[in-house]
Amino acid sequence: MRQANFGDTVLYDPEELAEVELECQAYVFLRERDVHAISEPAEQPRSGMYL
Rank of each mutant, 00 (worst) to 15 (best):
H36I: 14
M49F: 12
L30W: 08
Y50I: 01
E23G: 11
R33S: 09
V28S: 01
P14M: 05
Q25W: 06
E21N: 13
L11F: 04
Q3P: 01
R33F: 02
D8A: 00
R2M: 13
E40N: 09
E21T: 14
E19K: 13
D13N: 10
C24A: 12
Q3F: 07
E16P: 04
E21K: 04
F29S: 01
V20D: 11
A4P: 04
S47H: 09
E43V: 07
C24Y: 14
H36C: 00
S47I: 02
D8Y: 00
R46K: 14
C24W: 13
L30N: 01
D8N: 05
R33G: 03
D13L: 13
A18M: 11
V10E: 00
V35K: 07
S39T: 09
Y50C: 03
A18Y: 13
L22G: 01
Q44V: 14
A42P: 13
L22S: 06
P14W: 02
M1R: 02
E43M: 09
Y50P: 03
V28R: 05
T9R: 08
P45R: 07
V20G: 07
D13K: 06
D34K: 13
E19D: 03
Y50M: 05
Q3Y: 01
F6E: 10
M1S: 05
A26K: 15
M49I: 12
Y50L: 05
E19S: 13
Q44Y: 14
E15I: 03
L17E: 06
R33E: 13
R2K: 13
T9P: 00
D34I: 12
R46M: 07
L30Y: 08
V28H: 04
Q3H: 06
F6T: 06
P14E: 09
E15Y: 08
D13W: 03
V35Q: 10
D34W: 15
R46D: 08
L17P: 00
Y27F: 07
L11H: 04
